[in-house]
Design a protein around this nucleic acid. Structure first.
Length: 804
RNA sequence: GCCGCCUUGGCGGAAUUGGCAGACGCACGCGACUCAAAAUCGCGCGGUUUAUCCAUGCCGGUUCAAGUCCGGCAGGCGGCACCA
């Protein structure tokens, strides 16, 4: 058969569509399987080869599952709110809605051309009002349960995008959208209390099948640490203490080594006692300088510590009773712990560096290092520590100190997380309006559920205000409303939700995409959830993957969803690099357009190539020669129709066929797509050598290849008179007996080195093997003048003689 | 600095539980077909010799046997990062 991909690809795409071959059936009796890939942001650039690779894995699994008799849900939608569309809208003065719809159509067209088996009847878009109605509804549930709060704190702010960013969106001190430096500003913003779910997010990881690397990354992002909160008394020198200054420490057992305290530049105690501080001007200047630094600058200058001693105030070490100085320094962060620390210069390098610069005492309390040179952070015997002296185990000394602190009411055990609450509002237009109303009498009130969706109004100008206000703030008809509680005049919240809101629950909507009475029907959720297999990018591990687990756990706690975790299994794909081995980027000019590959070689070649090119999780460079290699393989597959002339099965070939069924079946499950395709290449080499095969051989072959190259295999199936659609046919099964060889070629070693081979029946015993090996001159010459002292025989694997 | 992962031919990679290292593909070389080229097909392809050694980043260990397990070192990738 001649392989005319240009003709056959659209043909089968139409036939699958007409047959509704990929439609998931609610409540069907077949076992369900829910496969999910991260839905894309519909950018103007269209699909990237990375999208193709990300979708192809679950696509192959989904197609195999259908053939194995599962009721498969493999949906697709669009994460269509976001900044790029809005920025483009500002530039071209077009409504982001129009741009987004156009891009969605473009993406869908491309996805169809590649032949993905999505169930389009469940398509969603997060920017559609019938979808974001329920995003707003979930937000109101969070609000009702006290998980939404407003606070004025230091926030991450991107001056370029003019938005407040969450901690997750400003990793490494860079804006996630434009990569410019983030600054810290005090701002009044909405937060979601994700930290309340920190332990649940942590513990839930033990119940899901995620790769260890993903679990590790989430664990370190959550950053749970156990320690103690300790109160130091603040004094101006008079007999009465002014106040308490609380610190957090993981090493409360080093309290005897505390020689000073440091507070963050923004610490509120400074303002409270500014009258007592005699060098207030100096302190204020330091604080202002710190505020000007970007997050990057503030965290990079590690060695040279800066700070100012606070004159007029001192602290009392609660365990020694000694008065110690207090400093303000920007190496202490307001966002972690209490924004104040007890400094133990002998055993913390940062405190050590600071003490050396400012000439503060350094007192050793753990033996083992040389504190004249550097801080000692290892373990050792406690010294200079009164009640702890002599203890050598960190656990014991911390436990003992904790008991003392609690007895004396100085401090208590505590837990801290690096993860912070989720800054949840954006001062932008193209997002879900936050459904809250500010009433002068009632405070903040949620929009009544009956009034949802709170639709995004049309505006003239999408530009964010220089005053940090959302474009929505300029629309009086939107802003002015009545309070749902008292009926009085009130004003709407004008900020919108962040990019990650819509994607935090979209997998639930796919279970029941067109419901307008609920976000999804409970019975349908019970039927489909959890997602059995979710594939996506590593870059979402501490954003989308964390946020969506949080929302889902919240919904579970409030009995809105049937499972505690949303995703039973998560996998990720490795990056496709440019042909030059560098990350693909427009500026480097090394971007591969997948639709160009479809045009040149066909969708089947593209699909098979991205899975064959490397291990699925590994980053690997694109190779045009490699693509042509896969195309050559598919050309040879098309040619198989010409040699499918044999009437009777060749037993040798039959054994190879069954081995390949086993290997391909297993390899797809293990996501080892490259070796699954390699096994099919090996089989076709065997077919070619044999010269002729049976029609049954060919049917098995195209079934195994079908998930990778669905169009070509359907065409072959039709050509040889197959009934119905191949995509609905049954996955081949193998006979374990037929995968076993009757004769095994076994390696024979002498002293661990391979010296020859012997052919043996599969059931051969050790004696048979030894006899055969001794008869082989290539092997027995190594026995000359030596004694065989030991024989190791592993059936079917190896025979090893130890000689002396 | 801390945590995690990786290192195999000219290249991408295989080796699922410790059992014949280099499957499969690419590139390359030779040959067939062709006036010629492309395409296609066939053969070869870690190094070294001519049957022997050396080869899975480097050094050491465990084992009859190590790419695989253990210890140390080097290089690379990813994540976090003045986190108290």
């Amino acid at each position: 058969m001649k392989y005319n991909f240009k003709k056959i690809e659209p043909k089968w795409q139409t036939k699958w569509n007409e047959a509704q071959a990929f439609k998931a059936v609610d409540f069907d009796k077949r076992p369900k399987w829910y496969g999910l890939v991260e839905f894309p942001y519909p950018s103007g650039a269209g699909m990237h080869v990375g999208h193709i690779k990300a979708y192809s894995s679950v696509e192959v699994l989904a197609r195999k599952r259908r053939m194995q008799g599962y009721n498969v849900l493999f949906p697709m939608g669009f994460d269509s709110f976001g900044l790029p569309a809005e920025n483009y809208a500002i530039k071209t003065n077009t409504h982001p809605h129009l741009i987004t719809e156009k891009n969605i159509e473009h993406f869908k067209d491309q996805m169809r051309q590649v032949g993905f088996s999505f169930d389009w009847s469940r398509e969603i878009a997060t920017s559609h009002a019938d979808y974001y109605k329920w995003t707003q509804w979930i937000f109101l549930q969070l609000f009702d349960k006290g998980l939404v709060f407003r606070a004025k704190t230091l926030v991450n702010y991107c001056p370029h995008c003019k938005v407040v960013l969450s901690n997750e969106d400003s990793q490494g001190g860079k804006c996630d959208i434009c990569h410019s430096d983030v600054v810290q500003l005090p701002k009044d913003v909405w937060y979601l209390r994700i930290t309340q779910y920190a332990d649940k997010l942590l513990n839930g990881l033990s119940d899901v099948d995620y790769p260890e690397s993903i679990k590790q990354q989430q664990v370190s992002w959550i950053g749970r640490s156990t320690g103690a909160f300790v109160n130091f008394e603040l004094t101006d020198g008079s007999a009465e203490a002014l106040d308490k200054l609380e610190i957090y420490t993981t090493r409360c057992d080093t309290l005897y080594g505390v020689t000073f305290m440091v507070v963050a530049p923004e610490h509120p105690a400074l303002d409270k006692y500014k009258d007592k501080i005699t060098n207030w001007d100096e302190v204020l200047k330091y604080r202002e300088d710190a505020a000007k630094k970007t997050e990057f600058q503030r965290t990079q200058l590690v060695k040279d510590k800066t700070g100012v001693k606070i004159e007029g105030l001192k602290a009392t070490n609660p365990i020694t009773g000694k008065q110690i100085p207090i400093f303000i320094a920007d190496y202490v962060m307001m966002g972690y712990g209490t924004g104040a620390i007890m400094a133990v210069p002998a055993h913390d390098q940062r405190d050590y560096d600071f003490a050396k610069t400012f000439g503060v005492d350094i007192v050793e309390v753990i033996k083992g290092g040389d504190i004249s040179k550097e801080a000692y952070t290892g373990d050792g015997e406690m010294v200079n520590s009164d009640i702890l002296n002599g203890l050598t185990n960190k656990k014991d000394s911390i436990a003992k100190m904790l008991t003392v602190l609690e007895e004396r009411g100085i401090g208590h055990k505590g837990v801290q997380y690096k993860m912070k609450d989720w800054a949840f509002n954006r001062q932008r237009y193209w997002g879900e309006p936050i459904p809250l109303v500010h009433c002068p009498k009632c405070g903040t009130v949620g929009v009544p559920v009956e009034e949802l969706p709170l639709t995004l109004p049309d505006v003239e100008n999408f530009e964010p205000g220089t005053d940090g206000q959302s474009p929505l703030a300029k629309i009086d008809s939107f802003v002015n409303c009545t309070c749902p509680k008292c009926g009085g005049a009130a004003k709407r919240e004008t900020d919108t939700m962040p990019q990650w809101a819509g994607s935090s629950w979209y997998f639930l909507r796919f279970c029941d995409a067109n419901n307008d009475a609920a976000f999804a029907d409970q019975d349908k959720l019970k039927y489909w959830m959890p997602v059995d297999h979710y594939n996506g990018g590593m870059e979402h591990v501490t954003r989308h993957l964390l946020y969506s687990r949080f929302w889902h756990q919240f919904l579970y706690d409030n009995k809105f969803v049937p499972t505690p975790e949303p995703y039973a299994k998560r996998t990720y794909q490795g990056l496709i690099l440019g042909p030059d081995g560098e990350k693909m980027s427009k500026s480097k000019g090394n971007v591969i357009d997948p639709l160009n590959i479809v045009d040149l070689y066909g969708a089947d070649t593209l699909r098979a190539y991205v899975l064959f090119m490397s291990d699925y999780t590994a980053a690997a460079p694109w190779s045009d020669e490699g693509v042509r290699g896969v195309k050559r393989f598919l050309d040879r597959v098309a040619g198989l129709t010409d040699i499918a002339t044999l009437e009777k099965e060749d037993p040798q070939l039959e054994s190879k066929l069954h081995k390949t069924i086993k290997k391909v079946t297993d390899d797809i499950e293990r996501m080892k797509f490259n070796t699954a395709i390699a096994a099919l290449m090996t089989l076709i080499n065997d077919f070619t050598k044999a010269g002729a095969i049976t029609k049954e051989d060919l049917v098995v072959f195209i079934k195994l290849l079908h998930p990778f190259a669905p169009h070509l295999t359907e065409e072959i199936y039709e050509e040889i008179g197959g009934e119905g659609l191949l995509t609905l046919a049954k996955w081949p099964e193998y006979d374990e007996e037929k995968t076993k060889d009757a004769v095994i070629n076994m390696g024979v070693q002498v002293n661990g080195k391979v010296r020859g081979n012997v052919d043996l029946p599969a059931e051969a015993t050790q004696d048979d093997a030894v006899e055969a090996a001794k008869a082989n001159p290539a092997i027995n010459k190594f026995f000359e003048g030596k004694n065989i002292v030991k024989v190791i025989f592993v059936k079917g694997k190896i025979l090893n003689f130890v000689v002396k």
